[in-house]
């Protein structure tokens, strides 16, 4: 009765490309890879529903659904994107009774065979030192570097959102801004 359908979630042509660092890929992919076969490596993680909050300021946040399709935990060690000079992995954490945004120590862990949702109010990718505005419908390329040596690139589309306004309220001020209807 139920089908496990992912395709409905990737309506925008989210371009997910897996790029291997050759040396690391060989060491990390088991004996078969040593043969020199150029059959396509399967991506360890799949990224869907990626979006970036529109911004004309110094920072913005990137969100996505990240699926670890392997039987082992994988960590996102770092990220980069084409719209800013600095990219960090952030989390919202309760510290001294207050929700604050901070860099996520040790990166974002993707448990085996699980999806992790990066979304407003939770873990997210922080773009800082923006090189230009991100407008509605713009696409930026985001690259994740994984603990298994792979890098994964995908496109995130610009959407307006009043939620998760981390750059202004990520510290001790969580009240909503004036954009609410």
């Amino acid at each position: 009765m139920f089908t496990f359908q992912r395709v409905t979630r990737a309506r925008l042509p989210v371009l997910a490309a897996v790029v291997f660092s050759a040396a690391i890929a060989l060491s990390g992919c088991g004996s078969d890879s040593e043969s020199g076969s150029d059959s396509a490596e399967s991506a360890a993680v799949e990224v869907t529903d990626a979006w970036v909050r529109t911004s004309d300021g110094p920072m913005t946040a990137i969100y996505a659904v990240i699926d670890n399709t392997t039987d082992a935990d994988i960590t996102i060690d770092s990220a980069a994107n084409t719209a800013s000079s600095i990219t960090e992995l952030h989390e919202m954490a309760m510290i001294d009774g207050e929700m604050v945004m901070q860099e996520k120590a040790g990166g974002v862990v993707l448990p085996a065979n699980s999806e992790v949702v990066l979304q407003p109010g939770g873990d997210h990718i922080m773009a800082m030192g923006m090189t230009g505005p991100v407008q509605v419908g713009d696409e930026i390329e985001v690259t994740l570097t994984l603990s298994n040596g792979q890098t994964v690139s995908f496109m995130a589309v610009g959407k307006e959102s009043a939620a998760g306004d981390e750059e202004y309220h990520g510290g001790d001020d969580m009240e909503m801004n004036g954009d609410m209807e």
Binding site: E91, K104, V116, V117, L118, Q119, G121, G122
Partner: peptide
């Protein structure tokens, strides 16, 4: 599997 590791965001999702 991941509640402890992935933190607030994933849990609320």
């Amino acid at each position: 599997l991941g509640g402890a590791a992935v933190g607030v965001g994933a849990t609320s999702a």
